[in-house]
Amino acid sequence: MSETSRADGDYSLLPVMETSTAYPLTHYTIGVHLGLKEFTEDNATEALRRTRAFLGLHEEAGKPLLSRQDGSPLLVQQVDKAFIRRHFGQKMSFGIRTPDEFDEHLLNIRSSLTGVPRRSYRRITFLGLARPNQHPFQIFQEIDDRYRSEARRVEIYTDGTLLWREEGYHGVGPAEIEHTESEDVPGLGIINDRTNQRAESVSAAEFAALFERAKGLTCGWIVDCEPSADEQPSTAIYCEESRPEDEPFCGHHMRSARLMFPALYPAA
């Protein structure tokens, strides 16, 4: 099928079933989500990216938004520059979104379509702690972005202790929720405006590995470290021996810790 022929003909919008929609991307059902004020030569590439991404989510979920007049679905692979050019000059009366705002909005749409709560992951580092053994120097959080509430966390102390918690204030786990918000969780920018805190995003995989280690009873002593790319943290390899529930390391490495860092690990 040629690029031009793909753009021929009118389309139906599902589920509203418009029967004569010459410019389907300007219809409220789609246009309000794309966040474009007008289709022009300057935004053709971005309009194509957004259209493919938005329609693709619905196609993956088995809920296509567009079909041709003959009832056949308009597949994402058929959405091309010719389809976008057909809309040139068309203006809309609803809001505009920057590329970053559109990408953020797309994550919310995916969550709504799949029913899977959207999650984000962060690391908060506390600077200049007066009593480091009584306050975590880092907290990792898994955030339910729909409700801005904490789903899980790991607290890391300077002596290697890892404490965990699930489901916020009313959940379970030994971590103390008072050290940072678990409800109405602020954005990273707000945290970074605080004088003694720094926050950044981390991957779901990094959080999952840390949470699994926090809940387990294996030694937290780093026995090797594999350097990776500059923009990624090094991959630490930990001792796999079991440890007592109230100690961060196995017996062998606790003896090493007390010899090397007597202030942090006083003799029992």
Rank of each mutant, 00 (worst) to 15 (best):
D10C: 06
S12R: 07
S12P: 00
M17I: 00
S20W: 08
T21V: 06
T26W: 05
Y28T: 06
V32H: 13
E38I: 05
F39M: 05
D42Y: 04
N43K: 03
T45A: 11
A47L: 04
R49T: 04
R52P: 06
G56M: 01
L57G: 02
G62A: 02
K63G: 03
P64H: 03
P64K: 02
L65P: 05
L66Y: 02
L66D: 01
S67T: 07
V79A: 02
R85T: 02
G89S: 06
F94L: 08
I96W: 15
D100Y: 01
F102Q: 04
L106R: 06
L113A: 04
L113I: 05
T114F: 09
Y121R: 02
R123Q: 07
R131M: 10
P132L: 07
Q141S: 08
D144N: 15
S149P: 02
E150Y: 00
A151H: 15
L162R: 09
H170P: 01
V172I: 14
G173C: 15
S182R: 12
V185M: 05
G187F: 03
G189H: 12
N192I: 09
N196F: 08
N196C: 00
S203P: 11
S203E: 04
A204H: 04
A209L: 14
F211K: 05
T218G: 11
I222L: 11
E226L: 13
A229G: 08
T235A: 08
C239I: 12
D246H: 13
F249K: 10
C250H: 12
H253V: 13
M254F: 07
M260Q: 15
P266A: 13
A267C: 15
